[in-house]
Amino acid sequence: MAQTCSHQTKLVAAAIIAVVIISALTAFAYTSSNTALKDIAKSGLESTAGVMAAQINASEIQGLTPGDENTPQYLAIAAKLRTMRSMNDYLLNAYIIRVNTTDHSATFLVDDLYPLDPSDSAKIGEAYNPPDKLEILEALSGPTASPSPYTDQWGTFVSAYAPIDDSAMDSNGNTYAVLGIDVSAKDYVSATTQGGWIIATGVVSIIIVLCLLYAFGRKSDGSGPAP
């Protein structure tokens, strides 16, 4: 009797250890997979923002002041942003921000949703202080992207930013403005959370191990079917 109890205790312990090990390995694989997907998505957004920013000449946006939304200059650059954005179905919005390097304030300069959606588009000079403000400031030096989805007055997004040089030719290396692009948080999460098969594999592995241990235990204590 004591031997049977000892045997059962060992089987229970083995089952617990197996479940813990498989669960830990599954969690590690799932986390690693999603981290890799997020890195890929972030890199892709930064590259897209960088390419788009490189197509903007500072002369196209210089001199814009509040109230200029209906001028030919503004409408031309807004249309140019929309054209570039249309090449990627996941992009919801493209815009240009001016950053004051003295007090680190940020204001909108161009929003490609205008004049198509004037009520939901940002106006020239409108202050912008999103949760990922740090990424906007860092974009003065190079492309950046939100570390995670954030929510502002327009919705929940992940954004990427890139510097617009002061001159397309003979640049002195100064950033005149920052270009931003948005993707929906829903699309971002869907693209970076695709490890369901890993969890399914882990669950199946646990079930198989527990079944094998159960079958082994029945055979060892003699309760299995007679030969």
Rank of each mutant, 00 (worst) to 15 (best):
Met1Cys: 09
Gln8Lys: 13
Thr9Tyr: 14
Ala14His: 05
Val19Asp: 01
Ile21Met: 01
Ser33Ala: 15
Asn34Ala: 00
Ala36Trp: 08
Lys38Leu: 12
Lys42Cys: 14
Leu45His: 05
Thr48Val: 03
Met52Gly: 00
Met52Asp: 05
Ala53Phe: 04
Gln55Arg: 13
Ile56Leu: 07
Ile56Gln: 04
Glu60Trp: 13
Ile61Val: 10
Ile61Asp: 01
Gln62Met: 02
Pro66Arg: 03
Asp68Tyr: 12
Glu69Thr: 00
Asn70Val: 04
Pro72Asp: 11
Ala76Tyr: 15
Ile77Tyr: 09
Leu92Cys: 03
Tyr95Ile: 04
Ile96His: 04
Ile97Phe: 12
Asn100Ile: 04
Thr101Pro: 04
Thr102Phe: 10
Thr102Gly: 09
His104Met: 14
Ala106Gln: 02
Thr107Trp: 01
Leu109Trp: 04
Leu116Trp: 07
Leu116Tyr: 13
Ser119Leu: 05
Ser121Gly: 01
Ala127Leu: 13
Pro131Ala: 14
Leu134Asn: 14
Glu135Trp: 02
Leu137Ala: 06
Ser141Trp: 06
Gly142Tyr: 00
Pro143Phe: 11
Pro147Ser: 10
Ser148Trp: 05
Pro149Ala: 10
Ser159His: 01
Ser159Leu: 06
Ser159Ala: 02
Ile164Val: 07
Asp165Thr: 15
Ala168Phe: 10
Tyr176Val: 07
Asp182Ile: 08
Ser184Glu: 08
Ala185Gln: 08
Asp187Ile: 10
Val189Trp: 02
Ala191His: 03
Ala191Arg: 04
Thr192Arg: 03
Gln194Thr: 15
Gly196Val: 01
Ile199Leu: 15
Thr201Val: 08
Val203Gly: 00
Ser205Ile: 06
Ile207Cys: 14
Ile207Phe: 14
Leu212Thr: 10
Leu213Val: 06
Leu213Phe: 10
Leu213Cys: 00
Phe216Thr: 14
Gly222Glu: 06
Pro227Thr: 12
